[in-house]
Amino acid sequence: MKTITESEALSRVAFYCSSAEHCRYEVEEKLRKWSLDEQAIGRILQKLESERYVDDDRYCRAFVADKINFAKWGKMKISRALSLKKIDDEIIQKYLLQIDEDEYKAMLRHLIAEKKRTIKGGNEYQIQGKLIRFALSRGFHLKDIYQCVGKQDDEFFE
């Protein structure tokens, strides 16, 4: 692999950041793959952040909106994905709290209704179990799932 200079790396990564939203961690990983030394990586990241090519706050806002609106992920899955990208928990919580609860629950109800149409056989108890597992895999909280499958918490724990 050809060695890349610091200025070439800056140019390439600036183009990478201008074509789509990326967090600091993603950019840092890309720079590490290019075998740049830590000081060069630090200088490049500082330059990118000062020129707002990289902004974890902006990235988090876009990520949450995309995962809610397009991927139909729940808050737990979104939070975990952002944590894996080394986004600060305060930033994550800030944008998760901005999610409209009524729209969020409506999305979950719609997902559950769509999934219910595809589930084959079994009694109502088995169907509800499959729906709950499906919604959990999408990253929704159990209390929200219970509300949307028509059960109250106390019915599940009797």
Rank of each mutant, 00 (worst) to 15 (best):
D57P: 04
R58E: 15
A62N: 12
I68C: 05
W34P: 03
H22Y: 04
E51S: 12
E21R: 10
K33H: 11
D56H: 04
A62S: 13
N69C: 06
L36W: 00
Y53W: 12
S18Q: 13
R24G: 11
L48T: 00
Y16F: 15
L36A: 04
D56E: 08
Y16E: 14
D57L: 06
L48Q: 01
S50T: 12
K30D: 07
E49G: 09
V54Q: 01
H22I: 00
V27H: 03
F63K: 03
R58V: 12
A40T: 12
F63C: 02
A20C: 09
A65P: 05
S35D: 14
I41D: 03
S35Q: 15
E21V: 10
Y25W: 09
C60Y: 03
I68G: 03
K33P: 00
C60A: 15
Y16G: 09
E29Q: 15
Q39W: 07
R24D: 12
F15M: 11
E29W: 02
S18M: 08
E21S: 14
A40M: 09
L48I: 04
I68D: 00
C60P: 03
S50G: 14
L48E: 02
V27N: 01
W34C: 06
E49C: 11
I41V: 15
Y59A: 00
Y25R: 09
Y16H: 13
D37E: 12
A62Y: 08
Q46T: 12
N69G: 10
R58Y: 15
Q39R: 14
I41P: 05
I44L: 11
Y16A: 10
V64N: 04
E28R: 06
L45K: 02
Y25P: 00
R52H: 14
K30Q: 13
S35E: 13
F63L: 00
L31V: 08
Y25L: 03
Y59I: 01
E26R: 07
F63R: 01
R24S: 15
Q46Y: 11
L45V: 02
E49K: 13
D55V: 05
W34K: 07
S19L: 11
E38Q: 15
G42E: 07
F15G: 09
Y53S: 09
E51N: 13
V64I: 09
K30W: 13
K47A: 08
S19A: 14
C17A: 14
V64E: 01
A62M: 09
K33I: 01
E28H: 00
S18F: 08
E49R: 12
Y16I: 08
K47I: 06
S19W: 02
K30V: 13
L36M: 08
